[in-house]
C-alpha cells in the first residue's frame, strides 16, 4: 500500500500554518541574499547556502568558547550577551567572507559568460563545505539552546513560543530595514540603478564595483543573521545544512521573481507554509516533492515568479 496519507493528531491547521510562516521567514532571510546578488550581477550564487552554514558554525563556536551552552546553566545576562554577540559577529564575518569571495573570485569574471560564474560559485560551495566538514565534523552538532520553548499564547490549539517570537522579531525588522534602505538611501538607489543597467549606472558616475561589494556585504550579513536565528530555532548545525536551506532559499527567490526583494520574502513564506502543511497532511517524506511541484505549477502560470516584472526580452 502507498502510505501517502499521514495521520493527523490534535494539533490543527492554525498551528502548522504558524510553523510554516516562521520557517518561511527564515527561508526569506536567506533568499534575500540570493535575490539581491542575482538582481545586480545575474549570478545564481550556489555558495550562498554554504556561507550560511559557515555562519552557523561560527555562532556555535562563539557560544561554545564563551561557555554559554544551555539555558539552565547560564545566567540571563550571559545568554542575552552571547546571543547579541552572535548576532553581531556572524553577520560581520559572513559579510566579510562574501565580499572577499566576490573580490577574489567573481569580480575577475564580470564580463565572462554566466555559466562560467555559476561554475565558480559551485566551486566555492565545495570549498566551504569541505571547510565545514573539517571544522565540526560530519555529524549534526547541537546548537546551544538559548531561547526558551515556553508558550506565549493561551488560546487553545496554537503554540507560539519565545523561539517563534525571536525568529519573527529578528527577521521582520531586518527585512523592513532592508526595504527602506534600498528604497530611500542613495546607496540603495545606486543599487537599483546598477541592477537595471550596469553600463548606464557607470556612465552616471556610480561606482559599480563598490555597489556590488555592498550588495555582497548585505547578502552575506543577512545569511549570517539567518544562520544565528536558524541555529537558535532548530538547535542543530550540520555541514550539509547549507545545501538544503540554500535550495529552499533559492527556490523562494525564484518563486517570488528573482531579483525582486518583496518577492523573495513572499516566496519564502509560501515555501515555508507549503512545506509545513504538506508535512502535516501528506507526511514529511513527501514534503520536498510537494514544494517543488507547486513551484513548477506556479511558474507555469506566472513565468516570472509571483512578483517578478513581466520583462520582455531585450533586443
Amino acid at each position: 500500500m502507498l502510505d501517502v496519507f499521514a495521520q493527523t493528531g490534535a494539533a490543527g491547521f492554525e498551528q502548522f500554518l504558524l510553523l510554516g510562516l516562521v520557517m518561511g521567514s527564515l527561508y526569506a532571510l536567506i533568499a534575500l541574499g540570493y535575490t539581491m546578488v542575482y538582481g545586480i550581477i545575474e549570478l545564481i550564487n550556489f555558495a550562498h547556502g554554504d556561507l550560511f552554514m559557515l555562519g552557523g558554525f561560527l555562532a556555535w563556536q562563539l557560544a561554545w568558547t564563551l561557555g554559554v551552552r544551555t539555558l539552565d546553566a547560564s545566567s540571563t545576562g550571559a545568554v542575552v550577551g552571547a546571543v547579541a554577540l552572535m548576532l553581531v559577529t556572524a553577520p560581520l564575518a559572513c559579510a566579510a567572507l562574501n565580499v572577499a569571495t566576490d573580490r577574489v573570485i567573481y569580480r575577475p569574471l564580470r564580463s565572462a559568460p554566466k555559466l562560467t560564474v555559476i561554475v565558480s560559485a559551485i566551486g566555492v560551495s565545495f570549498v566551504f563545505m569541505n571547510v565545514g566538514s573539517l571544522w565540526l565534523g560530519t555529524s549534526p552538532v547541537k546548537f546551544p539552546d538559548l531561547v526558551p520553548d515556553a508558550n506565549l499564547v493561551t488560546a487553545a490549539g496554537v503554540r507560539f513560543t519565545w523561539k517563534d517570537l525571536m525568529v519573527v522579531g529578528v527577521t521582520v525588522p531586518t527585512m523592513v530595514a532592508l526595504t527602506l534602505f534600498v528604497k530611500f538611501t542613495p546607496l540603495g538607489k545606486a543599487m537599483r540603478a546598477t541592477a537595471q543597467n550596469p553600463t548606464a549606472a557607470k556612465l552616471m558616475g556610480i561606482n559599480v564595483d563598490r555597489v556590488i561589494a555592498v550588495t555582497f556585504a548585505i547578502g552575506g550579513s543577512l545569511a549570517g543573521v539567518a544562520a544565528v536565528v536558524n541555529g537558535l530555532y532548530n538547535k542543530s548545525v550540520h555541514y550539509q545544512m547549507g545545501f538544503q536551506n540554500g535550495l529552499y532559499a533559492f527556490t523562494a527567490a525564484v518563486l517570488g521573481g528573482i531579483g525582486n526583494i518583496p518577492g523573495a520574502v513572499l516566496g519564502g513564506l509560501v515555501i515555508g507554509v507549503v512545506g509545513e502543511l504538506s508535512k502535516a497532511y501528506l507526511g514529511t517524506k513527501w514534503s520536498e516533492a510537494v514544494v517543488f511541484t507547486i513551484l513548477i505549477v506556479i511558474l507555469v502560470f506566472r513565468p516570472s515568479g509571483l512578483l517578478g516584472a513581466r520583462t520582455r526580452e531585450k533586443v
Binding site: G9, A10, A11, Q244
Partner: peptide
C-alpha cells in the same frame, strides 16, 4: 502510526506537534 521521515528536513516540529496530539 508509522511514518517515514525525510532526514534532510531542517526540523520535525510539525510532525512532533501531530504526534503530541496522539
Amino acid at each position: 502510526g508509522h511514518q517515514s521521515i525525510d532526514p534532510k528536513q531542517p526540523n520535525f516540529k510539525t510532525l512532533m506537534d501531530q504526534i503530541a496530539g496522539l
